[in-house]
Amino acid sequence: MTTRFCLICTFLCGICSIGKGQIIAGDSLVASGQYVAARVEYERALFGSTEPDAVFAASVGKARCLKQQGLYAPAVTFLNGQLQSNLPDSLLYQLRYEQVLCAYLAGQFENTLSLVERLPYLHPDVPPVPMLLAVRVLALNELQRWPAADTAYHELAALVTANTLLPNPYRELPRLKSEKKAQWLSTFIPGAGQLYAGRPGEAALSILIQSAGLYFGIASYINSYYLSAWGIGAGLFGSFHAGGVRRAEVLVRQRNQQRANAFNAQLRQQVVELIK
């Protein structure tokens, strides 16, 4: 009887240690930078084991390998497949937490927000975590939803510090220019749209080329070269005028993106400081 018990225990111990052994092997491969081999070991553990702890450790291990390789979007997809209902709630939460981080790193900001906002409903007992609030603030910033980001930032500040006198970074939002206004300006005053976008050099060049076309057209017309006035003067002026309008719009868009990026970078720094 004792022998039989010992054998059963040994068998169960062997089976359980399959997953653990592969996770250990995966961890050592990660340490030596062999991420694909490590991913295989973690998958092996997932293939051979149904034990929640092993499944969780292998899932997190593989997700971290993918993150190390910069494969953030595949990590999101992989974790999506690992969110099985037979895992305990606490482990599911940690997998979802990892998935949020991967989604943010993958630049899937809408997805990040959606995943973060789902957490309170899926895990109502878990209190808000500073890191997830920070990710929410950063994702909202990237989507340029400043009022929502402001609210989220204050929630985060209230959670991590009792100091209510912290400077509000959203008091001075980046001043974004209007693409439509740039278009209108360039339509009626050549080069004005480029000037509005903060590119005086391009504005001067645009004025010069359009004026040259116009001058050639008028001079040709005065000298009775009507076809040249139409074909070259008007043609050059019209082409560069239409191009100038489109260019002004592009420049304003680039300028806005630069300002938003600079603001976001500064705010990212502040958010990181806040959750340290």
Binding site: T10, F11, G14, S17, I18, G21, R44
Partner: peptide, 11 residues
């Protein structure tokens, strides 16, 4: 016991 555990563990 060693025979049973070893292959499962080391693979």
């Amino acid at each position: 016991l060693l025979c049973l555990v070893q292959p499962a563990y080391c693979q």
